[in-house]
Structure formats: structure tokens, C-alpha cells
């Protein structure tokens, strides 16, 4: 293993020799070995096109949508190979939030929150449903804003509210891990700050993996940081340590704004 890639104390996900190519033999992610700490916020940083989204989307097997994508290596969730799980189970355990808020436009706010149950045909008692909706919306700090309009369409909300609704939709389904791909890049600074606060709060119950372009965001909220460059994982460790004392010259150049 690369000496600039630290091990973690309490890994929930282990990524082993992972390579991913969109086109034949043109790898966007190259032979990555890394562990992800449980109940922590892990940030994935790096210049545009370095493979951050590609890596993140491998963790819940999103690439399977596109059969031409080639994936090598293994990903283990709690020591179980994700390829041995059904996508239904896997994605129940590993939720995902996207760059642009994408609530289901035909569903009410209420239905959006419990969409995971609804769309998968999981029956819940009304009380349980109400409780899940309320808890999820409270934990994303959206409850007070929408509690009187739960049955209106989710697409009437502001961008920041929509993104928090999407996070609520993900946590309502009670995953172990939440993957977020630049969740604040479409939001204004105030909405961004609220989502950041939320993520820090959520790590008590969830493991959070966050792709971000924004170094100060990574510094503010993450415990561990990965730095990727051209498909390679260059450096990985405690965020504080990486920001104060980067080990690889590329990391240092990136963190000091020399490129990216």
C-alpha cells in the first residue's frame, strides 16, 4: 500500500484494487485501495475530471446502469462484497445524494421522503410512515419550513430546501452510508451552510462520503480527506493533518491553489 494512504481505525467500507474505465482501457479510476471510517465525514477532493464522481458512484454500483463501463476490483461493505448483495439491499444500506436536487416532481413532499419505501413496495403503517417523515424532515432541519405543506409538490421548494428534502429522502430509508456528490454546488452560501451543519450532525448516525470541489468545505466538515489526481488516489488521511502537513507535493500544490 502507498505510504501516503493511511489506514483507518474502524472501517465500514474497504475498497480494494478498484479500477474503472468508461472506454476500453481508458481508466478514470486507477487501482485504488482505501478504507472508509465509520461514523465520520470523508471528503473526496481533486481537480475536475480526476475521477471523484466515478469512485463515489462505484460504491453503490451506479455504474451498472451503463453496461459499457468496466469495473475491476472489490468493494466491501462491513466485510461483505457489494457484488454479492442485491442492488435493492445494497442501495438501502448505501444511499446517495446528487449534485442537483432531484426530488420526484410528481410526488408530494411527504411522498418524496418515504419514496424509498413506496417505490419498493414496502408497506408501512400510517403511524410509522408519519413518524419516519417527521423524523427525517426534522433531522434535515426542514420540518418547520414544510410541516404545513407536506402534501404539496416537492418541486415548489427552493433549491436548498429541495436538496435537504433529497437528503431526508435518503436518510428516511435508514442507510448506513450516505454518498454525496457535490451536494452544495448548486446552492447559495446560506443553503450551503445549512447542509454542511446537517452533515456534521448526521455523522453521529451515518457514515458520510462527500465529493467536494470546495477545499474550505472539506476543511470545515470532514474528518478524513482523500486527494485524487488523474484517476489515482494520491493521499488519504486525517483532514487536519492533510491540510496542515500534506505529504505529497501534488497535494500541497492543490491545497495551496497552484492548480485545480
Amino acid at each position: 500500500m502507498n505510504e501516503n494512504i493511511d489506514r483507518v481505525d474502524n472501517p465500514i467500507i474497504k475498497i480494494e484494487n478498484l479500477s474503472i474505465a468508461y472506454d476500453k482501457d481508458k481508466f478514470a479510476v486507477k487501482d485504488i485501495n482505501v478504507e472508509i471510517e465509520k461514523n465520520a465525514v470523508t471528503a473526496i477532493m481533486g481537480p475536475s475530471g480526476c475521477g471523484k464522481s466515478t469512485l463515489l458512484r462505484a460504491i453503490n454500483r451506479m455504474h451498472e446502469l451503463y453496461p459499457q463501463i468496466e469495473t475491476k476490483g472489490d468493494i466491501l461493505l462491513k466485510d461483505e462484497n457489494i457484488m454479492d448483495m442485491s442492488t435493492i439491499m445494497l442501495r438501502r444500506k448505501i444511499g446517495m445524494v446528487f449534485q442537483r436536487p432531484n426530488p420526484f416532481p410528481t410526488m408530494s413532499i411527504y411522498d418524496n421522503v418515504i419514496a424509498g419505501y413506496k417505490l419498493n413496495g414496502i408497506k408501512l403503517k400510517k403511524n410509522d410512515r408519519d413518524q419516519i417523515v417527521e423524523e427525517s424532515l426534522i433531522s434535515v432541519a426542514l420540518w418547520d419550513e414544510v410541516k404545513d405543506t407536506l402534501f404539496k409538490k416537492g418541486s415548489f421548494l427552493s433549491g436548498g430546501q429541495q436538496q435537504r428534502l433529497c437528503i431526508a429522502r435518503t436518510i428516511a430509508y435508514k442507510p448506513d452510508v450516505i454518498l454525496l456528490d457535490e451536494p452544495t454546488s448548486a446552492l447559495d452560501p446560506i443553503a450551503t451552510a445549512r447542509v454542511e451543519d446537517l452533515l456534521v450532525k448526521l455523522k453521529k448516525d451515518y457514515t458520510i462520503v462527500l465529493v467536494t470541489h470546495n477545499m474550505s468545505q472539506a476543511a470545515r466538515i470532514s474528518d478524513k480527506s482523500m486527494f485524487m489526481y488523474m484517476g489515482n488516489l494520491i493521499e488519504y488521511g486525517n483532514t487536519m493533518k492533510m491540510f496542515t502537513n500534506p505529504r505529497n507535493p501534488k497535494t500541497e500544490q492543490y491545497l495551496t491553489g497552484k492548480f485545480g
Binding site: 453503490n60 451506479m62 446502469l65 442492488t87 435493492i88 439491499m89 445494497l90 442501495r91 438501502r92 444511499g95 446517495m96 446528487f98 442537483r100 432531484n102 426530488p103 420526484f104 416532481p105 419514496a115 424509498g116 417505490l119 419498493n120 433529497c166 429522502r169 435518503t170 430509508y173
Partner: peptide
């Protein structure tokens, strides 16, 4: 992104 939102919840493709 809407299709992916459904799939990311583990919903089978035909149901999405």
C-alpha cells in the same frame, strides 16, 4: 438525474 434518484433508492429499473 430523476432516473438515478430512483435507482439510488434501490428501485428496480422497470419500476423506475
Amino acid at each position: 438525474s430523476l432516473k438515478e434518484a430512483g435507482l439510488a433508492l434501490g428501485v428496480p429499473y422497470y419500476k423506475v
